[in-house]
């Protein structure tokens, strides 16, 4: 499972997913850009076939001002093969919803709750999607760009 060539993997993935997957690279990482709908399928392939068993980091970036969307970033590592890859996907700002990857990597549990809490992105099929860092009765999502440091003017809920 862990014995494969990274380039082959990318080609296979491209063949399998077709146009739904955009692969590009920069100095540090290889990025797999996909649609929110295909995320779960891609995750399963990456974990089961290529051994990316360590979801190190799951976070979201607010691009509402420039693109009108949130970007969700998954930093994946394979502990046996010592490889890394990044999945990126975008959800529209007016309907921030995406499938939970909890069934694939249980570690997504709290990380998704954190993103939900601070960014306001809903993860479908998450077992317990409640606020984690902020109080349960808190209104607003502090890490959004429209949440100013001054306080709660212009809060979108």
């Amino acid at each position: 499972m862990s014995e494969y060539d990274p380039q082959d993997m990318l080609q296979e993935l491209q063949q399998q997913m077709g146009e739904k997957l955009v692969i590009y690279q920069d100095r540090f990482f290889t990025f797999l850009h996909t649609n929110p709908g295909d995320l779960l399928a891609l995750s399963r392939i990456l974990r089961d076939k290529y051994g990316f068993n360590h979801l190190a980091d799951l976070t979201a970036v607010d691009y509402i001002d420039s693109h009108g969307s949130f970007e969700i970033v998954y930093h994946l590592y394979s502990i046996p093969a010592n490889r890394k890859i990044v999945i990126k996907t975008r959800v529209p700002a007016n309907k921030p919803e995406i499938d939970s990857v909890f069934p694939v990597w249980p570690t997504a549990d709290w990380q998704e709750r954190e993103v939900y809490d601070l960014m306001g992105i809903t993860f479908k099929n998450h077992p317990n999607l409640v606020r984690i860092l902020m109080p349960d009765d808190y209104v607003g999502h502090p890490l959004r760009k429209d949440f100013t440091m001054r306080g709660r003017e212009n809060v979108t809920n």
Binding site: L118, R131, L133, M134, P135, P142, L143, M149
Partner: peptide, 11 residues
């Protein structure tokens, strides 16, 4: 958790 949340990422 969250009792010591200081919003470091927002800061």
């Amino acid at each position: 958790v969250g009792y010591v949340h200081r919003a470091v990422e927002k800061i």
